[in-house]
Amino acid sequence: MDNAATTKITENVLKAMLPYLRENYGNASAIYSLGQKSRAAIENSRIKIAENLKVKPSEIYFTSSGSESDNWVIKETLNPREKNHIISSKIEHPAILNSLKSVERFGNETSLISVDEEGFVNLDELSEKIKDNTKLISIMFANNEIGTIEPISEISKIAREKNILFHTDAVQAMGNVKFNLKDIDVDMLSISGHKLGAPKGIGILYIKEGVEISPFINGGEQERGMRASTENIASIVGIAKAIEDAYANMDENINYTSDLRDYTIEKLLNIDGIIFNGPIDNRLPGNINITLKDTKPQTMVQYLDMYDICVSSGSACAAGSINPSHVLRAIGRSEEDSLSTLRLSINHNNTKEECDYVVEKISEGMKKFKNR
């Protein structure tokens, strides 16, 4: 029940990867045939991804993670000879928020726009915050904690009208929201493999042709000189297969998961002391975020773990933090409520019977641990 934290590698992905872990293990920079098999695997994967996203293969760059892709955008689109301004939101992933703090040290300015009680960004405030030196707008596609799907096309339109670069972190959206880059019209977009059945340690950054951005890792000529490092061939093949399968089964998986989410939310809200967070509509199909009144979420997480149920008390990247969720604080939840939250994130592999079991154990836990 914590698929927003990570997912298991699917059988199709594993099968596609295996030859590049053993037999076809060559370095893609080598000119002999073993190396060229790896080179072909990379470029074929790039083509597959580009076809699904409806972009050019040359606009797809492989990274190690969604966080790396986010860092690349924030740190390398800025002109080092100028003082730039970046606009983002108060509910972004730490990969964005901490990257913004990093560039502020060099004299750049950042603005974080507010969100409403359901987590949707304030578009009027976005327009008002734009300055003459605004270089970049970075707003996440879908929130990792409360599941809000942001109006990306509307944000893109604002950026286009002002000739400002627009980036979106689509780590949670990929595989859960039906889109292509031709329709949403962004300049840069981040993806992470392990959120959709590919392995950990592989990500993608889409960079639209014509966007000026500096290399992120200097060294060899891998990724057309933009991101040096010997390529992770097997994982590149894996993320390409995961995206291919996600698009092939998108409608079926979204419909199934959304129905299961709504069924589970309805049952959870019958439990005394549970408050629902985030929007009903325009929400990730598998996201369920609830506040447990007068109950410590860490205690509930440990209790559920005794029954082989995995849930989180916030985002995976904030695990172990004793601070209230910045996302829940941004939507107006009190500090106490923000510290008392569970996130369940289901997908098409979960069943109704599993959800019934989880609701039953949460209900038991609420009675057992209330005010403790």
Rank of each mutant, 00 (worst) to 15 (best):
N52T: 15
E266P: 10
V177C: 15
K56W: 02
G193R: 00
E223N: 12
T63Y: 01
H348K: 02
V358G: 06
I139S: 02
H85W: 07
M1H: 07
L189M: 10
P80Q: 04
L165M: 08
T7E: 06
A142I: 02
S69H: 00
N12S: 13
I87A: 14
S190F: 00
I87V: 15
S102R: 02
S138V: 00
S29C: 12
T295L: 15
A16K: 03
L97K: 05
K129R: 15
T63E: 03
L100D: 01
N44Q: 14
L292A: 07
I204N: 01
G220C: 12
M250W: 10
Q298S: 13
T63H: 01
L196N: 09
R343V: 11
S156N: 06
G35D: 04
Y256Q: 08
N218I: 15
F120T: 08
I309A: 09
I149L: 12
I239S: 06
S99F: 02
F216C: 12
I31D: 10
G147M: 01
I331T: 15
A41D: 03
N287S: 15
K129T: 10
K48W: 01
R46T: 09
T168M: 06
K131P: 06
Q298K: 11
T295C: 15
G201I: 01
M226L: 09
K131R: 14
I331R: 11
S111N: 05
K162T: 04
R22P: 01
P297I: 02
M17N: 03
T148Y: 10
T110E: 00
I275E: 14
E353Q: 12
L344H: 09
Y25M: 04
G203S: 04
D337T: 08
S65Q: 05
I49Q: 13
E336F: 02
A330E: 15
E252N: 13
N133Q: 11
D281Q: 05
V13H: 02
F62H: 03
K182F: 07
D356S: 09
